[in-house]
Simulated assay, not measured.
Amino acid sequence: MTARIRIVLADDQAIIREGLETVLNLVEDFEVVGTAADGAEAVALIAAEHPDVALMDLRMPVLDGAAATRRVTEETPETAVLVLTTFADDADIVAALRAGARGYLTKDAGRAELAAAIRAVAAGQSTFSAPVRDVLLGRIGAPDPARDAAESEAPVTPGTESGVAADAAADADPASANALAARFPALTAREREVYALILQGRSNGEIAQALYVGVATVKTHVNAVFAKLGVRDRAQAIAKGLGRA
């Protein structure tokens, strides 16, 4: 029998906690091992139970979800945090990703989407609902005066776009491989293609299909991207793409 995914739920609304606990315990490979009504309680419970996944609301008393996520990431790193919240504005998303959340769903997600997201983060993957991906891609192309000023003064690396050409590429599609060349010149052309697809929320299998290469080849490129960006997973890579990580 396959080992169950052990889950802790953190939400300040009792009806939400109880409903999620009931629904998730009906899934054969899930086991809810505890629930918490605020961020501080969640951190303590996760430290005691060491669950595979923590389902974390953001707006909670005592300690908010982003701060609780940061504590969990630092103190119980084997637990993957999946944010489940009503809010999908860019500030909340960025705060959660910077804190170390592995995935981000809104509470209008269906049961199948939630179950798939829990399995994904438990397996070490990152996952984001479609509205969240849209916000992330919008933030990637949003103006950042501090970043833009720093990049305008940075030396041009041979073989990369610069000046007007780079600006035009970024304006056309800020998440494209060409636009990424201006921001991340250390990446090879293929790595930029892979990174662009990561920013679209594609899995390794989907990237392999899009680029007509094997999954093992994609994994090699993904690992290289992570190493060059100084990140450990897709969530951090996307946060890095925001230009504010």
Rank of each mutant, 00 (worst) to 15 (best):
I16V: 15
A66H: 09
V156A: 12
A122C: 07
T127M: 04
A80R: 13
M56D: 07
L24S: 05
E153R: 13
Y195W: 06
Q200P: 00
V62N: 10
P158E: 13
V32S: 06
R119P: 00
A142Y: 02
A208T: 11
A175R: 02
G138K: 06
R139G: 08
V8E: 06
L58T: 08
R133W: 14
F184R: 01
F30A: 10
R147F: 13
D89Y: 03
N25F: 09
I207H: 07
A186L: 13
T22G: 15
A99I: 14
G163L: 03
L20G: 01
V213Q: 09
K107E: 05
G65K: 01
R234K: 08
R102A: 15
G138I: 03
A14M: 09
A189V: 14
S152A: 15
T127Y: 01
V231I: 12
S126W: 07
I15Y: 07
S162G: 01
A36W: 10
R232Q: 15
R6V: 08
M1R: 10
S152N: 03
A67H: 11
V83C: 03
D233G: 14
I207M: 09
R17Q: 08
I207W: 05
T157R: 14
N178Q: 12
F184G: 01
R59Q: 12
R6L: 08
L9H: 02
A120T: 14
D90I: 13
A68C: 09
V218Q: 05
D173G: 10
D90G: 08
T157V: 15
R6N: 08
L136W: 07
T160L: 04
R111E: 13
V8N: 05
D233A: 11
A165L: 13
A149Q: 10
D92V: 01
A116N: 10
A149H: 03
I15C: 00
A117E: 07
G214E: 12
A154R: 14
R133H: 11
G34F: 07
E153S: 12
A165N: 00
I15K: 01
G19A: 08
D57C: 14
R133T: 14
L58H: 10
L114T: 09
V53K: 06
R244V: 15
